[in-house]
Design a protein around this nucleic acid. Structure first.
Length: 293
DNA sequence: ATACCGACCTGTCAGC
DNA sequence: TGCTGACAGGTCGGTA
């Protein structure tokens, strides 16, 4: 579901609502797919820790945690076992840790009251000292949960921070189609299918153009377009398609601004010709053949 | 290095 | 009222 603007919106909402709160206990469902770290390690790392702040890195939600973790699970032996598992990864021993959440396509992280109905596909519930609950829900289970000892770095550079010089350097000379390069999280982190298509439209570049065939001037335009599209989307709370909502259950409105994404066959808002859809790297790619070269 | 494909999952919607 | 197939915000690993 979520690309940079959606994750940014969710992280801001979560920071507003749970920063300063303490995780008292954690329930984890039996499905293993969403877990990148073992369930015992996740629980042992989260329980007893205070949420310092919630922010975003690429498409990941990052919870900065502090305080001594104190697992209440089982007896002393069980506790020692989870501590050992955690220390194998150097997690859970120090005063600080990080909880990393990737929402995949359909993941949601919501703040609930304990009495709220538990949604289908709920994989984790963290009970907070304030009495509320943080719940992770993910029907398709493409999301990922993990814990870190700090300094989490997903690789790639932040599109909203990268300079034009650095941006050009990332892509220059690559033979890959520019859209594939934009989606490569090891280069630029946070751009997904919607915002890649929208950025390329605004920059007047076709998705299949080889990065190596793009001029310096066009790269400058693309750099500006990516940042403009992401900023506008964040301002509008992201794009709500089917089921996306932020931490407060609010929908975003950027989908109303889409100029090409999911507009196959509809007239281009600039020149009127029909928007085309092709499959590139297994993803639907939308563009105007007249406005984009 | 690069590019294409299927796999990972469930849900929804269009078409027959 | 079904059934089937295509498709969906993302990533990863295998294979040419």
């Amino acid at each position: 579901m979520p690309e940079l603007p959606e994750v940014e919106t969710i992280a801001r909402g979560l920071d507003k609502r749970v920063a300063g709160d303490t995780i008292e206990s954690v329930w984890i469902g039996s499905r293993k797919q969403p877990l990148k770290s073992p369930a015992g390690v996740i629980a042992a790392t989260l329980e007893g820790r205070r949420i310092v702040r919630v922010h975003r890195a690429g498409k990941h939600i990052v919870f900065d945690l502090e305080g001594e973790a104190q697992s209440k699970r089982g007896g002393r032996a069980a506790r020692r076992k989870t501590r050992q598992a955690a220390s194998l990864q150097n997690i859970g021993e120090g005063r600080t840790a990080q909880w990393i959440v990737h929402l995949g396509m359909t993941g949601r992280m919501v703040v609930c009251e304990p009495a709220d109905e538990i949604a289908k596909h709920t994989h984790l519930i963290a009970k907070l000292a304030s009495g509320r609950e943080l719940r992770f829900i993910d029907p398709r289970m493409f999301g990922k949960l993990s814990v870190h000892d700090g300094g989490f770095d997903p690789g790639g550079v932040e599109p909203l921070e990268v300079t034009e010089e650095k941006f050009v350097e990332l892509f220059r000379g690559r033979k890959t189609p520019i859209k594939s390069a934009l989606l490569n999280q090891k280069l630029l982190r946070g751009v997904g299918n919607i915002y890649a298509d929208e950025s390329l439209f605004r920059a007047g570049i076709r998705p299949r153009r080889r990065a190596a065939a793009i001029t310096r001037q066009q790269f400058g335009k693309l750099h500006g377009a990516v940042r403009e599209v992401l900023r506008e989307a964040i301002t509008l709370g992201g794009s709500s398609i089917s089921d996306y909502v932020d931490a407060d259950g609010e929908e975003g409105f950027f989908q109303l601004q889409h100029r090409v994404y999911a507009r196959e066959g509809e007239p281009c808002l600039v020149c009127g010709s029909a928007i085309r859809r092709v499959v590139l790297a297994g993803r639907s790619s939308h563009f105007c053949a007249k406005c984009q070269k």
